[in-house]
Every structure is written in C-alpha cells, then in structure tokens.
Amino acid sequence: MSNAKIRLVGLNKLFHTRFQTIEAVRNVDMEFAAGDFVSIIGPSGCGKSTIIRMIDDLIKPTSGEIFIDGRRVSPHRRIPPEVIRKIGFIFQQPNMYPWMTVRENVMLPLRVFGLRDPEWARHADALIEMTGLREQRHAYPTELSGGSMQRAGVIRAMVHKPDILLMDEPFGALDEMTREQLNLELLDIWRATGKTIVFITHSVQEAVLLSNRVYVMGTNPGRVVDEIAVDLPRPRNLKLIVSDRFAGYCELLTGRIGQVELSQIK
C-alpha cells in the first residue's frame, strides 16, 4: 500500500455547466506501483482524461486525495514544484509551440525548470537522436509528419527525467501503422528507463499490448468498473498480437467494456 508511486483515494469530480452538474468521476480508487505500466480504458466521457489531469494538478478534484511517493498532493492549493518535476505529461495532440524549432520545443521543460547545466542539453540531444529526429531538430514542428511530431511530444515530456509519464491517448490521432510503431518504441523506452506510466486509451489492443494492468471505466458517472491484470510475457512485440492469449485478453476487455455500455442502456 505504502510503496505505491501514485495512489488515488476516493476521488470525485463534479463539473458545473450552466444547465447541469456533471459527475465526471465518482469515488475512484487507483494505485500505480513504481515502474508499472497501467492503462485506463473506457468510452468517451468516462472521466479517464479528468483523472490524469487531476494527478498532474491541471484539474482540482472536488473531493478525495492524491498521493505521489506517499506524499499527499491534493487538495493542496498547488502541487509542489519538486513533485511536478517528477511528472511528464503527454497530450493527445503533439501540442508543439510552432514558433520554436523541434529542439527548442523538446528543451522547453529544461528552461521552465531552470535546468541550465549543459549535461541536460546533451540528454535532450540524446533523446532526439534516439527517436530519429536529429535531421529535423532545427525544423519547425509544422514541417514534421504527425508521427514525428508526437515523438517530439513524448521526449519533451521525458527531457527532465521524470519518474512518471502521464499519457492522454497520445497516439489516438495517428494512423494504425504509425501507432503500432510508436507503441513499440514506447515499450523500449519503458524497459530502458523503468518509468511509471499511466496510459489513457480507447483502444483495447493498445491497452493489452502495452500494460501490466488495465482499469476499465464506465460513464454516467465516470467510475472504475473493473481491474484486469494482463499476464503476457515481456518483452512484447507485434507477433504477440496474433497469439491466442492476446486475443483472449482483448475479448475479455471488450466484454467488460461492452457490459458497461449494456448496463447503461437498461
């Protein structure tokens, strides 16, 4: 219990619009062990994006508690700087600043965190090299393909060496082939760095391929309906996708999500 990297206890979030109050998240308990790769899956509107935004203090929970490394960070007024430095956030869209070159974009967190040591710049260049963006490092983001831009988005979130990566459907906007490629690259990064990854997705296959554990969420209100451990061998590759066990997990997950949606119709 205590060695969890991130722990969410009884998290609730209400959004007030002009006409109604939406219960985005109800009574969510989650736990992410250090070095774990956990996915959160569910239909749109189930509050999965809201949850990782609450972890990163982009959204304040209405009630409940968030612990990072055993330290309670919510409902503080603002997440302490030393905690926020442990987190890298990857958005659904690449979210590059168009007036900065690719390298300047990747180095942005170093500037904001005031990490001026040349060692950090070398680390940034190493990440750029690793993702094959070296030739394009002085280009503007709009000159890059969607896949390359999202690669830059991923290494930007890693440049300050955070322990935790929060990924909000990072490859959802990419085509199937680029997505698979980036999934494999992400697994390589995870194996090499041992970061704690919380991965939001609406793709069952992606969740099974990547994670150790999957939280299944339902809507109205957004809540956790199931938690499934994915016991497949590592390192994983695309061959795994055609195996029976992989198909079994996909079926199980699809079934759980389906049940959630059926129960809503009733």
Binding site: E135, Q136, S145
Partner: peptide, 9 residues
C-alpha cells in the same frame, strides 16, 4: 529505436 521519417530538412 528506428526512424520512419522520410522527410528531411
């Protein structure tokens, strides 16, 4: 890691 990017500037 490999690169799949063809466009280069």
């Amino acid at each position: 890691m490999t690169t799949t990017t063809a466009r280069q500037t």
